[in-house]
Amino acid sequence: MSPTPQQRRAARHQLDPSAPAARRGPSGRRKKPITVEAIISTAFDIVEKEGYEALTMRRVAAALETGPSSLYAHVVNKEDLDELLIGRLCAEIELPAPDPATWRRQLIDVCTQLRDQYLRYPGISQAAFAAAPSNLDTLRVSEGMLAILLAGGVDPQTAAWTIDALTLYVNAHSLEVSLAARRSDEAWVRSRDEMLNRFAALPDTFPQTKRYAAELTAGTTHDRFAFTLGLMLDGLPGQPSLA
Protein backbone atom coordinates (compact mmCIF):
# COMPACT_ATOMS: atom_id res chain seq x y z
CA MET A 1 0.00 0.00 0.00
CA SER A 2 1.33 3.43 -0.94
CA PRO A 3 2.14 5.75 1.98
CA THR A 4 -0.41 8.45 2.73
CA PRO A 5 0.48 12.12 2.21
CA GLN A 6 0.76 12.47 5.99
CA GLN A 7 3.23 9.60 6.15
CA ARG A 8 5.25 11.03 3.31
CA ARG A 9 5.38 14.43 4.99
CA ALA A 10 6.56 12.81 8.21
CA ALA A 11 9.16 10.74 6.38
CA ARG A 12 10.54 13.84 4.71
CA HIS A 13 11.73 15.15 8.08
CA GLN A 14 13.69 11.94 8.61
CA LEU A 15 15.44 11.85 5.23
CA ASP A 16 19.22 11.72 5.02
CA PRO A 17 20.21 15.42 4.90
CA SER A 18 23.29 14.69 2.78
CA ALA A 19 23.10 16.27 -0.66
CA PRO A 20 22.05 13.99 -3.53
CA ALA A 21 24.34 13.38 -6.45
CA ALA A 22 24.70 16.27 -8.84
CA ARG A 23 22.79 16.12 -12.11
CA ARG A 24 23.92 17.17 -15.55
CA GLY A 25 21.85 18.78 -18.25
CA PRO A 26 21.90 18.10 -21.99
CA SER A 27 24.83 20.49 -22.43
CA GLY A 28 26.83 18.62 -19.83
CA ARG A 29 26.70 21.44 -17.29
CA ARG A 30 25.92 20.64 -13.68
CA LYS A 31 22.30 21.16 -12.66
CA LYS A 32 20.98 21.95 -9.22
CA PRO A 33 20.19 18.71 -7.29
CA ILE A 34 16.52 18.03 -6.66
CA THR A 35 15.91 18.61 -2.95
CA VAL A 36 13.06 20.02 -0.89
CA GLU A 37 15.11 23.20 -0.42
CA ALA A 38 15.70 23.53 -4.16
CA ILE A 39 11.99 23.07 -4.85
CA ILE A 40 10.99 25.66 -2.25
CA SER A 41 13.58 28.18 -3.45
CA THR A 42 12.53 27.73 -7.08
CA ALA A 43 8.85 28.06 -6.18
CA PHE A 44 9.47 31.32 -4.33
CA ASP A 45 11.44 32.65 -7.29
CA ILE A 46 8.56 31.87 -9.65
CA VAL A 47 5.99 33.55 -7.38
CA GLU A 48 8.19 36.61 -6.88
CA LYS A 49 8.68 37.12 -10.62
CA GLU A 50 5.40 35.86 -12.08
CA GLY A 51 2.86 35.78 -9.25
CA TYR A 52 1.29 32.89 -7.39
CA GLU A 53 -1.02 32.04 -10.30
CA ALA A 54 2.02 30.91 -12.29
CA LEU A 55 3.09 28.38 -9.66
CA THR A 56 2.45 24.77 -10.69
CA MET A 57 4.40 21.58 -10.14
CA ARG A 58 5.09 21.46 -13.88
CA ARG A 59 6.42 25.04 -13.82
CA VAL A 60 8.74 24.27 -10.90
CA ALA A 61 9.95 21.11 -12.63
CA ALA A 62 10.70 23.03 -15.81
CA ALA A 63 12.70 25.62 -13.88
CA LEU A 64 14.71 22.79 -12.30
CA GLU A 65 15.16 21.15 -15.72
CA THR A 66 13.42 17.95 -14.74
CA GLY A 67 10.01 16.31 -15.01
CA PRO A 68 7.15 16.76 -12.51
CA SER A 69 7.50 13.14 -11.37
CA SER A 70 10.96 13.93 -10.02
CA LEU A 71 9.45 16.41 -7.58
CA TYR A 72 7.07 13.91 -6.02
CA ALA A 73 9.88 12.07 -4.29
CA HIS A 74 10.29 15.21 -2.16
CA VAL A 75 6.94 17.03 -2.24
CA VAL A 76 3.64 15.15 -2.03
CA ASN A 77 1.62 17.47 -4.29
CA LYS A 78 0.87 21.16 -4.98
CA GLU A 79 -0.98 21.49 -1.66
CA ASP A 80 2.06 20.13 0.16
CA LEU A 81 4.26 22.65 -1.66
CA ASP A 82 1.86 25.43 -0.63
CA GLU A 83 2.16 24.36 2.98
CA LEU A 84 5.94 24.31 2.76
CA LEU A 85 6.00 27.83 1.32
CA ILE A 86 3.70 29.28 3.97
CA GLY A 87 5.66 27.45 6.65
CA ARG A 88 8.91 28.94 5.39
CA LEU A 89 7.47 32.46 5.57
CA CYS A 90 6.10 31.81 9.06
CA ALA A 91 9.52 30.57 10.20
CA GLU A 92 10.84 34.13 9.82
CA ILE A 93 8.23 35.68 12.12
CA GLU A 94 9.51 36.76 15.51
CA LEU A 95 7.19 35.85 18.37
CA PRO A 96 7.38 37.82 21.62
CA ALA A 97 7.10 36.46 25.14
CA PRO A 98 3.41 37.05 25.96
CA ASP A 99 2.93 40.20 28.03
CA PRO A 100 -0.47 40.87 29.67
CA ALA A 101 0.25 44.61 29.58
CA THR A 102 0.97 44.86 25.85
CA TRP A 103 -0.69 41.77 24.41
CA ARG A 104 -2.80 43.70 21.89
CA ARG A 105 0.17 45.45 20.36
CA GLN A 106 2.08 42.18 20.36
CA LEU A 107 -0.71 40.52 18.40
CA ILE A 108 -0.90 43.39 15.91
CA ASP A 109 2.86 43.14 15.42
CA VAL A 110 2.67 39.41 14.66
CA CYS A 111 -0.13 40.01 12.14
CA THR A 112 1.85 42.84 10.55
CA GLN A 113 4.89 40.60 10.19
CA LEU A 114 2.74 37.94 8.54
CA ARG A 115 1.29 40.49 6.13
CA ASP A 116 4.75 41.75 5.22
CA GLN A 117 5.93 38.20 4.54
CA TYR A 118 2.99 37.57 2.21
CA LEU A 119 3.51 40.85 0.34
CA ARG A 120 7.02 39.77 -0.60
CA TYR A 121 5.49 37.21 -2.96
CA PRO A 122 2.47 38.41 -4.99
CA GLY A 123 -0.67 36.45 -4.23
CA ILE A 124 1.01 33.79 -2.09
CA SER A 125 -1.48 34.23 0.74
CA GLN A 126 -3.89 32.22 -1.46
CA ALA A 127 -1.86 29.18 -0.41
CA ALA A 128 -3.04 29.69 3.17
CA PHE A 129 -6.77 29.75 2.39
CA ALA A 130 -8.90 26.68 3.16
CA ALA A 131 -5.92 24.84 4.62
CA ALA A 132 -5.66 23.25 8.04
CA PRO A 133 -2.03 23.91 9.01
CA SER A 134 0.13 20.95 9.96
CA ASN A 135 3.53 22.47 9.18
CA LEU A 136 5.39 23.05 12.44
CA ASP A 137 6.54 26.54 11.46
CA THR A 138 2.97 27.58 10.66
CA LEU A 139 1.70 26.02 13.89
CA ARG A 140 4.43 27.88 15.80
CA VAL A 141 2.83 31.19 14.79
CA SER A 142 -0.69 30.13 15.79
CA GLU A 143 0.72 28.78 19.06
CA GLY A 144 2.37 32.14 19.70
CA MET A 145 -0.81 34.05 18.89
CA LEU A 146 -2.83 31.81 21.19
CA ALA A 147 -0.37 32.36 24.02
CA ILE A 148 -0.59 36.13 23.56
CA LEU A 149 -4.40 36.11 23.62
CA LEU A 150 -4.53 33.91 26.70
CA ALA A 151 -2.05 36.20 28.45
CA GLY A 152 -4.45 39.05 27.72
CA GLY A 153 -7.23 37.28 29.59
CA VAL A 154 -9.19 36.15 26.54
CA ASP A 155 -11.01 32.88 27.14
CA PRO A 156 -9.69 29.88 25.15
CA GLN A 157 -12.65 29.48 22.78
CA THR A 158 -12.76 33.17 21.92
CA ALA A 159 -8.98 33.17 21.51
CA ALA A 160 -9.16 30.22 19.11
CA TRP A 161 -11.77 31.87 16.89
CA THR A 162 -9.95 35.20 17.09
CA ILE A 163 -6.87 33.57 15.54
CA ASP A 164 -9.05 32.30 12.69
CA ALA A 165 -10.54 35.75 12.11
CA LEU A 166 -7.21 37.58 12.27
CA THR A 167 -5.38 35.22 9.93
CA LEU A 168 -8.28 35.23 7.47
CA TYR A 169 -8.19 39.03 7.38
CA VAL A 170 -4.40 39.12 6.98
CA ASN A 171 -4.63 36.59 4.13
CA ALA A 172 -7.41 38.51 2.36
CA HIS A 173 -5.77 41.91 2.85
CA SER A 174 -2.45 40.65 1.47
CA LEU A 175 -4.16 39.08 -1.54
CA GLU A 176 -6.09 42.27 -2.35
CA VAL A 177 -2.94 44.40 -2.14
CA SER A 178 -1.09 41.97 -4.40
CA LEU A 179 -3.91 41.88 -6.95
CA ALA A 180 -4.20 45.67 -7.03
CA ALA A 181 -0.47 46.01 -7.58
CA ARG A 182 -0.55 43.62 -10.55
CA ARG A 183 -3.52 45.13 -12.41
CA SER A 184 -2.56 46.14 -15.95
CA ASP A 185 -5.78 47.91 -16.91
CA GLU A 186 -4.89 51.59 -17.21
CA ALA A 187 -8.53 52.55 -16.66
CA TRP A 188 -8.49 51.03 -13.19
CA VAL A 189 -8.72 53.65 -10.44
CA ARG A 190 -5.43 53.95 -8.60
CA SER A 191 -5.30 57.47 -7.14
CA ARG A 192 -7.29 59.10 -4.38
CA ASP A 193 -7.81 62.19 -6.53
CA GLU A 194 -9.49 60.09 -9.18
CA MET A 195 -11.78 58.51 -6.58
CA LEU A 196 -12.69 61.94 -5.20
CA ASN A 197 -13.53 63.18 -8.69
CA ARG A 198 -15.71 60.14 -9.34
CA PHE A 199 -17.57 60.54 -6.06
CA ALA A 200 -18.09 64.25 -6.70
CA ALA A 201 -19.67 63.42 -10.07
CA LEU A 202 -22.18 61.00 -8.53
CA PRO A 203 -25.89 61.91 -8.74
CA ASP A 204 -27.62 63.34 -5.69
CA THR A 205 -29.06 59.91 -4.89
CA PHE A 206 -25.67 59.25 -3.22
CA PRO A 207 -25.68 62.13 -0.69
CA GLN A 208 -23.62 60.43 2.03
CA THR A 209 -20.98 59.14 -0.37
CA LYS A 210 -20.57 62.62 -1.86
CA ARG A 211 -20.51 64.34 1.52
CA TYR A 212 -18.00 61.98 3.11
CA ALA A 213 -15.85 61.26 0.08
CA ALA A 214 -12.74 62.50 1.93
CA GLU A 215 -13.32 60.06 4.77
CA LEU A 216 -14.13 57.17 2.43
CA THR A 217 -10.86 57.64 0.56
CA ALA A 218 -8.61 58.58 3.49
CA GLY A 219 -5.66 56.55 4.73
CA THR A 220 -3.08 54.25 3.24
CA THR A 221 -3.49 50.49 3.01
CA HIS A 222 -1.27 50.27 6.10
CA ASP A 223 -3.56 52.69 7.97
CA ARG A 224 -6.61 50.64 7.11
CA PHE A 225 -4.85 47.40 8.01
CA ALA A 226 -3.93 48.66 11.50
CA PHE A 227 -7.41 50.12 11.99
CA THR A 228 -9.14 46.85 11.13
CA LEU A 229 -6.93 44.79 13.43
CA GLY A 230 -7.60 47.23 16.26
CA LEU A 231 -11.33 47.14 15.54
CA MET A 232 -11.34 43.34 15.66
CA LEU A 233 -9.44 43.23 18.94
CA ASP A 234 -11.63 45.95 20.47
CA GLY A 235 -14.60 43.70 19.78
CA LEU A 236 -13.37 40.90 22.02
CA PRO A 237 -15.82 40.26 24.89
CA GLY A 238 -15.03 42.12 28.09
CA GLN A 239 -11.88 43.79 26.76
CA PRO A 240 -11.09 47.49 27.23
CA SER A 241 -10.31 49.84 24.34
CA LEU A 242 -6.83 49.98 22.81
CA ALA A 243 -6.53 53.62 23.81
Rank of each mutant, 00 (worst) to 15 (best):
Arg120Asp: 12
Asp99Arg: 00
Glu92Phe: 08
Leu139Cys: 06
Leu85Pro: 15
Gly153Trp: 07
Leu146Asn: 05
Pro100Arg: 00
Pro100Asp: 08
Ser125Ala: 04
Val110Lys: 00
Ser134Asp: 12
Ala101His: 02
Ala159Asn: 12
Asp155Ala: 15
Ala101Leu: 12
Leu95Val: 12
Leu146Lys: 02
Val110Ala: 05
Leu89Val: 15
Ala160Trp: 11
Asp109Leu: 02
Leu95Gly: 07
Arg120Cys: 13
Asp137Phe: 04
Gln117Leu: 06
Ala151Thr: 11
Ala101Lys: 04
Tyr118Cys: 02
Leu114Lys: 06
Asp137Thr: 05
Ala151Val: 06
Cys90Lys: 02
Trp103Lys: 01
Gln106Ala: 07
Leu95Cys: 03
Glu143Cys: 05
Ile93Ala: 03
Met145Arg: 01
Leu146Gly: 10
Val110Arg: 03
Glu143Phe: 08
Val141Ala: 01
Arg120Phe: 03
Gln113Pro: 02
Pro100Ala: 04
Ala130Tyr: 11
Leu119Trp: 07
Arg140Val: 09
Pro156Tyr: 00
Asp109Met: 02
Cys111Ile: 02
Ala101Val: 11
Ile148Leu: 13
Cys111Ala: 12
Gln113Trp: 03
Thr158Ile: 07
Leu114His: 08
Glu83Gln: 11
Pro156Leu: 00
Pro156Met: 00
Leu84Arg: 10
Ile86Lys: 06
Ser125Pro: 15
Gly144Met: 02
Gly152Thr: 09
Arg120Glu: 14
Thr158Pro: 10
Thr162Cys: 12
Gly153Ile: 14
Leu136Gly: 13
Pro96Ala: 15
Asp137Arg: 02
Pro133Thr: 01
Ser125Gln: 03
Ser134Ile: 05
Ala130Cys: 09
Asp164Cys: 04
Leu84Pro: 15
Glu92Pro: 11
Ile124Asp: 06
Trp103Ile: 13
Leu149Tyr: 08
Ala165Phe: 13
Trp103Gln: 10
Ala130Asn: 14
Val154Tyr: 10
Gln106Ile: 02
Val141Lys: 06
Glu92Val: 09
Ala101Gly: 09
Ile148Pro: 15
Ala160Ile: 07
Leu95Ser: 05
Leu89Ile: 10
Ala128Arg: 01
Tyr118Pro: 03
Ile124Ser: 12
Thr162Phe: 09
Ser142Phe: 06
Gln106Phe: 04
Asp137Trp: 01
Gly144Asn: 13
Pro122Lys: 00
Tyr118His: 00
Pro133Lys: 00
Leu114Gly: 07
Leu85Val: 10
Arg115Thr: 10
Pro96Met: 15
Arg104Leu: 12
Trp103Pro: 15
Gly123Tyr: 05
Ile124Lys: 00
Ser142Ile: 09
Leu114Ala: 08
Ala97Glu: 14
Asp99Ser: 08
Phe129Cys: 09
Ala128Cys: 14
Thr112Tyr: 07
Ala91Ser: 10
Thr102His: 08
Leu119Gln: 11
Glu94Asp: 12
Ala132Tyr: 09
Leu136Cys: 15
Gln117Met: 06
Leu136Ser: 14
Asp164Ser: 09
Tyr121His: 11
Leu114Thr: 07
Pro122Asp: 03
Arg88Ala: 06
Arg105Thr: 03
Pro98Gln: 06
Pro122Ser: 01
Gln157Ile: 13
Asp155Phe: 13
Cys111Gly: 07
Gln113Tyr: 01
Gly87Tyr: 01
Val110Leu: 08
Leu84Ser: 14
Met145Gln: 10
Ala91Asn: 13
Glu92Gly: 11
Cys111Phe: 10
Pro122Thr: 00
Cys90Ser: 09
Ser134Thr: 11
Arg115Ala: 01
Ser142Arg: 10
Ile86Phe: 04
Gln157Leu: 11
Arg88Leu: 07
Leu136Thr: 11
Arg115His: 08
Ile148His: 02
